Amino acid sequence: MIVFTPSELEQIDALWRACPIDHVWTGWAFPGNCDDEVWIFRNKANWRRFTLCKSRTAYYIYDEKRRIVAKAPSLEDLLLNVDAVPGINDPLPLD
């Protein structure tokens, strides 16, 4: 995957801040040790983390098992619709 630029991180933050307070997307983090991924958090009965990565042509959101749950050509397209990501409203499956 490809690293996120400072302007992309600013865009992620702006998109997150534009969400209503009760939105399923409750936060995000740039772990720093992996500059090619951003974590997206949700809280709906329990915490859950999704991973945001990018390629040369698209942005991807992965679940905990590294399955692609969403793909879009731009951050705005992907993150404005994060509440429609398959599984983001589902509780974390117990193994």
Rank of each mutant, 00 (worst) to 15 (best):
S74R: 09
C53E: 11
L52D: 02
R49A: 10
P91T: 02
I2D: 14
C34F: 07
L52F: 09
I61V: 15
A14S: 14
A84H: 13
R67N: 10
P73R: 14
T57Y: 12
I61K: 00
W16H: 15
L94G: 02
Q11P: 00
E37P: 03
L15N: 02
D35T: 11
F4M: 06
P91R: 01
R56W: 03
R48S: 05
K65G: 01
D90M: 12
C53M: 11
T5A: 14
Y59K: 06
A29C: 03
C53F: 00
L94I: 09
L78F: 07
K65N: 07
L94W: 08
V85F: 07
D63I: 04
R67Q: 08
T51D: 06
H23Q: 05
P73S: 14
Q11E: 15
D83W: 01
A58E: 15
K54V: 07
V3G: 11
N46E: 15
A84W: 12
K54H: 01
V38N: 04
M1V: 07
I40G: 01
V85K: 06
R48P: 04
A18T: 08
R49T: 15
V3F: 10
E10S: 15
P6V: 14
A18F: 12
A84C: 13
L92R: 10
T51I: 11
D22V: 05
C53Q: 13
I12T: 01
T57L: 11
A70W: 00
A84D: 15
T26F: 02
P20E: 12
D90E: 15
V69Y: 03
I12W: 06
F4T: 05
R67W: 00
I12R: 01
V85D: 03
W47M: 00
G27A: 06
L94C: 09
K54C: 07
L80A: 11
F4I: 04
P31L: 07
K44N: 09
G27Y: 07
V69W: 03
A58T: 10
F50H: 08
K65I: 02
P86M: 11
V38T: 03
